[in-house]
Amino acid sequence: MRPEISSDLDALDATLTTIEKVMDPEEMAARVRELEAQAADPSLWDDPDHAQKVTSELSSVQGRLRKLSDLRQRLSDLPVMYELAEEEEGGEELAEEERADLRAEIEALEVKTMLSGDYDPREALINIRSGAGGVDAADWAEMLMRMYTRWAEKHGHKVDVYDISYAEEAGIKSATFVVHGDYMYGQLSVEQGAHRLVRISPFDNQGRRQTSFAEVEVLPVVEQTDHIDVPDNDVRVDVYRSSGPGGQSVNTTDSAVRLTHIPTGIVVTCQNEKSQIQNKASAMRVLQAKLLEKKRLEERAEMDALGAGGHASWGNQMRSYVLHPYQMVKDLRTNFEVNDPSKVLDGEIDGFLESGVRWRMAQQQEAEG
């Protein structure tokens, strides 16, 4: 085995060892045994909400433990693969592919160990709003929504759409949806900010280049322990008929719900559930998430990176997507860039997420001195 390969394997081993120290597989195994005991208790489902939390955590911890064990086993097998590669045609190419895949997975797991914020383990509530750029901006907002839903699908995370406000000509004015799964907020929160698109406008008869913006807001999903008190007197509830883009069937009853939080002026809508009661419950969850974010920002005003609700324009752009006159997607904070926008827009954003988390960690360490 060549010295450079041996050196790379040693580096991967050191990184994985550090990850194991942080994740503590022995502690995770003990937690699995504890949760398995709870899951085996026949009375567990007397409280369905608690039972759901137990089974969900059990599945999550078991998955992380299996992942860690699998990476360690694959890393142990790699030297053997390289030894056998000398005797088999095409063997070295397979070993190289496995080393590259293993490096990517170890680095991705290393990034997850950096997600230590209070809200990082939670699911993510994402709001996308079209900004400057007219119809192109509305189309761009819809493209971003597809990018995130495609990323979630590729990673096996369920997405629930709470509300979409369609633009008149094309695209969307805004959308609100939840990405379910552990540490979704921790990973996706680095996407917050203004996203800028430069392309030849498909809506311009003269084929001119257009710059448009969309704002992405990422919030942690509220849990029962957050104690976000929303008195009924503070909320105005309006109901109206759901709507959609031209040609698609829409509800014929007033099932859509708009909540207005009177003290703050925050407005939330939900129209994607079948009943008014379901829409009101979903809208309340979004409102609580926004109020939680507001409370958190007031308590930690110095941490601007956790803020939300900016303006989609030149001033606070965090990523630039250029489709013309050249092809590039570049994060303006981390300088991470990709020269194939089509793949990025199809959901391949892991590189941006990982570099964003590392950048945020470096910023926090610098702030702490």
Score class of each variant (00 low, 15 high):
335 N>E: 15
83 E>D: 12
177 F>Y: 11
328 M>A: 01
70 D>V: 10
193 G>S: 09
339 N>D: 09
254 D>L: 07
31 R>N: 12
357 V>S: 10
1 M>T: 13
337 E>R: 08
314 W>C: 08
236 R>F: 01
305 A>Y: 11
109 L>D: 05
189 S>H: 14
41 D>C: 02
6 S>A: 15
287 L>D: 03
253 T>N: 07
86 E>D: 13
218 V>S: 09
175 A>T: 06
84 L>Y: 06
28 M>R: 05
309 G>I: 02
233 N>D: 15
24 D>K: 13
221 V>E: 13
261 H>W: 04
169 E>C: 13
53 K>T: 14
201 S>E: 06
101 D>G: 11
294 K>C: 06
76 S>M: 12
291 L>N: 07
147 M>K: 00
243 S>L: 05
181 G>L: 01
16 L>R: 03
196 R>S: 09
33 R>I: 08
51 A>D: 06
69 S>I: 04
36 E>K: 13
354 E>M: 12
180 H>C: 06
363 Q>N: 04
9 L>N: 09
26 E>V: 14
343 K>Q: 14
150 R>V: 08
77 D>Y: 05
48 P>C: 08
157 H>I: 05
272 N>C: 09
93 E>R: 04
225 T>D: 14
165 S>L: 09
232 D>K: 08
61 V>H: 03
154 K>H: 13
67 K>A: 14
301 A>N: 12
114 M>Y: 06
38 Q>N: 02
366 E>G: 12
126 I>F: 03
139 D>R: 05
134 G>S: 04
179 V>H: 04
270 C>K: 00
298 E>H: 02
235 V>L: 06
197 L>G: 02
38 Q>M: 11
357 V>A: 13
125 L>H: 11
365 Q>G: 07
164 I>K: 01
275 S>H: 02
247 G>A: 01
